[in-house]
Design a protein around this nucleic acid. Structure first.
Length: 606
DNA sequence: GCCGTTTTCGGCCCGACTGTTTTCAGTCG
């Protein structure tokens, strides 16, 4: 579990806006970034740790909001009362929203060299050591740190020594990034292999996943594994002997951290079986959730740590997660919800939602075949969908403008429609719907004429080009596309690719509100590199009454397994079965699609 | 900097590991 309080900088409801083309107010994400920056600066300034935490908490709170604050402020409306944000921070939010900056940040920046904040990202360097290095040796950048270490100066600073000097040099040179995050689906198999390896050691009772991997976050920064065994079993010694381990960061009897050849960090903890429940809660996190339930413990006069729930010296619970939550007066909270976004209050009052499950999915509405850039035939995809437990799938090959994917022009699509009719006549227990993933062109028009689109069961629209439009242009483009009478689902709305392409520069909250008004659905694309939309955005869509379609975007018969990741993301968004379009039976789906189309046609006539 | 049927001041989550120290500070999760 990664517990550094540096949240992802991705844009949520509104991508970061280039200053040259700021046609919209400052986003919540940008306000949060200012607070995080202030917290970094305060750390180096050796400020009160609780003041620093207040800024970190405020950043997280603002980032998690589904309502944009700047427009509210611009309209002169009062800020809603937010937990952890008092008079001072509310004032700073207004200041940032109005001016784009904050006097406190400017003052701190003017007194500290800009490179110092960077140094915080070097493993083993915290604010105290940075301060010492700056005062004694004038070190203000990673480069200067390396030079001083190579010349042997650092070992002479009080509190430092030769070993620490070597460690810092190594960390600075390797740039052992604390911020590197990989897609869940990439990390999961690595973690499962390690778990198998640890289980093979005699004396190990069990090994389990914890951390953000267990919470099924879309990206994972490191692998957390909990092993139940006696400390004498030598679990950490076994771990460091694993052939994929390249660097040992720390190794004690009950805890070890290593880096794999792939650059992934692995943290392993060894606990006694009797402590497993409390340890699982603790190491699953998130940090914010842990703080929230510890506060709940304190409110009850109890103490919670990784060994159990305690009343004075007496241990009340700890063997199972259920017992830990129960001792705190809470229902068990599924790991996907453990982000301190209201789940503790819901568990306290018995109002935890019943979340969507993989088995609730009846179909997949975004699937490709050999006709465009898929790897399998229509029939193979249909049979694979059936094998995956689905009752229907929509074939949605690319349209003509996406030539690189052999997109279909009208005639080829009409031919595919006939083939699907023939296939449906042959197949039993699975129904193939006729669809298309139609290109949304630069001006927001669709790539195929109504005469073709009108023949389909559904139209999935997507952007694959012109990612660099301005916020206003991109938003207008998508709104115009969704306005089309046959438009059904907006596929991968952000068009982000994890670690490769940033989300589109657009006003997503406007898109979501428009989808609600027009009866369109939004996709939660479950391709591991996409995972598009984010959880909070799905939650906002749900709040606005927009149905989410969890689709695999399968290009091969094996890709239906991705649906699992989409469902996990939906669960993190508090979505229930009814919030998801493709949990509907085929009959209910068809009636819903017909109604949406009819409603849109009526609206067009008005 | 926030917060309050203990409190408007004095708390604020808790423990393991490392390295530099002779009992603990700093970092990390």
């Amino acid at each position: 579990m990664k517990l550094t309080a540096v949240p992802p900088r991705e844009a949520l409801l509104g991508a970061p806006t280039p200053t040259a083309e700021r046609s919209q107010a400052i986003s919540n994400d940008e306000i949060a970034a200012v607070f995080d920056d202030i917290a970094d600066l305060l750390e180096i300034d050796d400020a009160n740790p609780f003041r620093i935490r207040a800024y970190r908490v405020a950043a997280r709170t603002v980032r998690a909001l589904t309502v944009e604050l700047a427009p509210l402020i611009a309209r002169g409306e009062p800020l809603p009362k937010l937990p952890g944000i008092g008079v001072d921070l509310a004032g700073k939010i207004s200041e940032i929203a109005t001016t784009g900056n904050c006097a406190l940040r400017q003052r701190l920046r003017s007194t500290l060299p800009p490179g110092l904040v960077e140094l915080l990202s070097i493993a083993g360097l915290g604010p105290k050591r940075i301060k010492h290095l700056y005062h004694d040796l004038g070190i203000a950048t990673a480069q200067q740190l390396c030079e001083a270490a190579q010349q042997g100066h650092i070992r002479h600073v009080p509190g430092f020594g030769e070993r620490l000097e070597a460690r810092l040099l190594s960390a600075a040179q390797k740039g052992l990034g604390k911020d590197r995050r990989l897609p869940l689906a990439v990390v999961e198999p690595v973690a499962l292999r390690l778990i198998e390896y640890l289980r093979q050691l005699p004396g190990v009772e069990d090994a389990q996943l914890a951390g953000s991997l267990r919470r099924m976050r879309d990206t994972v920064g490191d692998i957390d594994i909990l092993v139940t065994a006696a400390p004498s079993v030598g679990v950490t010694a076994h771990l460091v002997k694993h052939p994929e381990v390249s660097t040992v960061l720390v190794k004690g009897r009950t805890r070890a951290s290593v880096v794999l050849d792939s650059g992934l960090q692995v943290d392993v903890r060894v606990v006694k079986p009797a402590d497993l429940g409390a340890a699982l809660v603790y190491f699953t996190g998130s940090k914010a959730h842990n703080i929230a339930i510890r506060k709940q413990a304190r409110d009850l006069g109890l103490k919670l740590n990784e060994y159990g729930v305690f009343k004075g010296q007496e241990r009340l619970a700890g063997a199972t997660e259920v017992s830990v939550y129960q001792a705190l007066g809470l229902r068990w909270i599924t790991p996907e919800l453990r982000e301190d976004r209201g789940e503790v209050a819901a568990a306290l009052s018995g109002r935890l939602p019943r979340l969507v499950e993989v088995s609730d999915l009846k179909g997949d509405l975004h699937v490709h075949s050999l006709d465009s850039d898929g790897g399998n035939s229509l029939e193979q995809m249909a049979l694979a969908a059936q094998q995956a437990g689905l009752e229907y799938l929509a074939i949605t090959d690319h349209s003509r403008a996406l030539a690189v994917a052999h997109g279909l022009a009208g005639e080829r699509l009409l031919k595919q429609i006939d083939q699907i009719d023939a296939l449906n006549a042959r197949l039993q227990g699975i129904t193939v719907l006729k669809g298309v993933e139609v290109e949304i062109l630069e001006d927001g028009s669709l790539d195929l004429p109504d005469t073709i689109l009108g023949r389909l069961d559904l139209v999935v629209g997507a952007v694959h080009s012109h990612f660099g439009l301005t916020l206003r242009q991109q938003t207008q483009r998508l709104l115009r596309a969704m306005d089309h009478r046959y438009f059904t689902i907006l596929a991968h709305p952000l068009c982000r690719l994890i670690n490769e392409r940033a989300p589109l520069n657009m006003d997503l909250s406007a898109i979501i509100r428009a989808a609600a008004a027009r009866g369109c659905c939004l996709e939660l694309n479950a391709q591991p590199q996409r995972m598009d939309l984010f959880d909070l955005q799905c939650q906002y869509a749900k709040d606005q009454g927009v149905l989410i379609s969890i689709n695999s975007d399968a290009h091969r018969a094996t890709d239906f397994s991705y649906l699992r990741y989409g469902v996990a993301q939906a669960r993190r968004a508090w979505l229930g079965k009814d919030d998801v379009l493709n949990t509907r039976s085929l009959r209910a789906l068809k009636s819903l699609l017909a109604k949406a189309r009819g409603g849109r046609a009526d609206a067009a006539r008005d």
